[in-house]
Structure formats: C-alpha cells, structure tokens
Computed example of a mutant assay.
Amino acid sequence: MPSGGEFDLIARYFSRPAPSGMLGVGDDCALLSPAQGCELAVSTDMLIEGRHFFPNTDPGLLGHKALAVNLSDLAAMGARPLACTLAISLPCIDEVWLQAFADGFHALSRESRCPLVGGDTTGGSSGVVLSITVMGEVRRHHALRRDAARAGDDIWVSGTLGAADVALRLVQGRLPPDPARLQAALPFLERPVPRLKLGRYLAGVAHAAIDISDGLLQDLGHILDASQCAAELWLDALPADPVLDGLPEDVRRDALLAGGDVYELCFTAHPRRREQIEILGRQLGLPVSRIGEIRRGSGVRVLDAGGQALTVEHQGFDHFAESV
C-alpha cells in the first residue's frame, strides 16, 4: 500500500487542480458556481463489479466508462458538465490498476471539461464498487425533462442500437464465438460516448429526453410514464448497428428493443423540428433517426413493416435481477 494510506492514494491518483472559480479536492466540500440564469443538474450512478462490469475489465476502459455513463445523464438533460465526484471501494490497493483506472477517468474528465473535485476512498471485502456524481448546468426552463413529451411528438434516437448488447452476449457465451463481430462490437460496450453536444443543442428544441442505458423500450417507458402518454415505434426505422447483420431475427430484435449499455439519446420533439434536428445531426456527424410517435394513452406498440403490432417480452435490464 502506498505510504500515507488513503490520503496519499487520493493525492497520487485523484487530485487534480480545480478550474478557476472552483474549490476542488482537499477540503470538506467542493465549491461550484453555476452561471447566472442556469439551474444545477446533478446525477449519481453506481457501478458494481460482477453486476455492471466484469472482474477482469481493463481498468483504463473502466475509468472511462464509469465517468461516461454519468455524463450521459447530463447529456439527456441538455446540461453542460461542471464537475464530478468519485467514491471508490477497493478490496486491496493495486497501484498498477489504480494508475490505469485514473488515467482513463481523467482523460475523459479533461475531454468533457468535467473536473474531479472530490469524493471518497475506502477498503471493501469484496469487489470494486464505484459511485460517481456529476454536476452540470442548464439554462433555466430549458432542461430536457422526462415529463415533457406531448401527443403528436416525433420520437428520435441518436447513433445506432444493439452493438453493446451483441458484445455482451458474445462475451458471456450466449452467441456462438465470432471474433470479428466481437472486435467490432466491444468498443460500444467498453467505451461509450456520452452525447453531450447533442444534448446541449437539443435543449430548447426537443421536449423530453433520456439516455438508453437499460434498453430502448424500458427507458422510453420512463418518458411515457412521466408524461402520461403512449408511443408507437416502427421496428424497421430503428437504426441497427452493422454488427447485428446476419444474426437471427429474434436476437436482432431483442438487441434493438431491449439491449442496454447504449448511451445514445432517445428524445421527443414537435414535427416542425424535423428539419432542424436532421441538420443538427449532420453538423455533429451523428446519425439521428425518427423511430416513432407519441400517442395518447399508455404503453408502447411496436409495429412491423406491415403495420402489425408485435409481442415483445423482454423490456430491458433489471438491476436487481441481472448482472454481467
């Protein structure tokens, strides 16, 4: 263990200078100052070894993903990152592991301009446990809330769907070995890209948004519940990632509708915003696909190419019933 124990560990791996105007690591609390006219957006996610990531996960990739999945929540609110905190429980001190984890974490922290300003470290008896809190700012009354979808809205999704789910199935042996497919799919699972720019540009344009962490149907369902409305999805309009090509239809459909770890944005907007959203996607170099409509009522109907409703059993990831 490094000399000095916990505080030397923090200083060695997690202390970085705070930006001007902030008080960061080294005091009882961090101090932040959101811009005038903005609201503070705050989100916390926990990642547990064995449930959310494999014990042999590359620590550098884990450092990136741990922060990325939290930044994705800020993107879904249309917020600009301000800072983050990290609480980490470790079964033992492995300096090589810690250095790689810290490098991955701080690389994305710098890229996203979301400095680490505090947190906690402790020893634990089992595997690694990570808890990250991100803080951001969004212009007052411009946040993309889940309860803001309206009947008649288009439903959109960014990027492609299904690749992370395919990677997980291959790693777990739930699909026949396919090295080429795994190589193409694995980056989607291990190194997600939070859609921060898209989220910020959608603030004031879209009505409601959510990031797809637990599956399209499940996460869209959160919007529908909060907004008290229904949805119609068009299966053929879902942007399937090319790594799904050649897979059995039931696997492909489940990956598209229920596959988690996507971290793309699902959002709703008035039809008059279609051209604006398409232009925005081209400007960002990011595909955006119109995949359905918000309706009055409740629940989701998934329609095939002939307009027939499909029966869908698996809705998405259950954090209490499933693990990696």
Rank of each mutant, 00 (worst) to 15 (best):
D147I: 02
D147T: 10
D147P: 08
A149I: 11
A149V: 09
A149S: 13
A151P: 14
D153P: 02
D153C: 02
D153T: 03
I155M: 02
L161D: 09
G162I: 06
A163D: 07
A164N: 08
D165C: 12
D165H: 15
V166C: 09
V166T: 12
L168V: 04
L168P: 01
R169C: 06
L170H: 13
V171Y: 03
Q172I: 01
Q172Y: 01
G173D: 05
P176D: 02
P177A: 04
P179G: 00
A180D: 13
R181Y: 11
R181D: 04
R181I: 07
L182N: 07
L182V: 05
Q183R: 15
Q183E: 13
A185R: 10
A185Q: 08
P187M: 01
F188L: 03
E190P: 02
R191E: 06
P192R: 12
V193D: 05
V193M: 05
P194F: 03
P194S: 02
P194R: 08
R195H: 14
K197S: 07
L198W: 11
G199A: 03
G199C: 04
Y201K: 12
Y201V: 00
A203H: 04
G204N: 12
V205I: 13
V205A: 00
A208E: 07
A208V: 09
A208S: 15
A208N: 09
A209W: 14
I210P: 01
D211G: 05
I212R: 11
I212E: 03
S213H: 11
S213G: 15
S213W: 11
G215L: 00
G215S: 02
L217R: 14
Q218V: 00
Q218S: 10
Q218T: 06
D219W: 11
L220K: 13
H222D: 06
D225A: 12
D225S: 10
C229S: 09
C229N: 07
A231E: 04
A231H: 10
A231R: 09
E232Y: 05
L233H: 12
L235M: 12
D236R: 15
D236E: 15
A237C: 14
P242G: 08
V243L: 02
L244D: 04
G246F: 09
G246V: 10
G246P: 13
L247K: 09
P248N: 03
P248M: 01
P248S: 02
E249M: 05
D250G: 01
V251E: 11
V251Q: 12
A255C: 14
A255G: 06
A255I: 06
L257I: 04
L257M: 03
A258S: 15
A258T: 12
G259Q: 05
G260L: 01
D261R: 14
V262M: 00
V262Q: 13
Y263P: 03
Y263E: 00
Y263F: 14
E264Q: 15
E264N: 14
E264L: 07
L265Q: 11
C266G: 08
C266D: 03
F267N: 02
F267D: 03
F267S: 02
T268L: 04
H270F: 00
H270G: 00
H270I: 00
R272Q: 10
R273Q: 15
R274G: 01
I277L: 10
I279A: 11
G285A: 04
P287E: 01
S289N: 14
S289G: 02
R290P: 07
I291W: 11
I291L: 06
G292C: 06
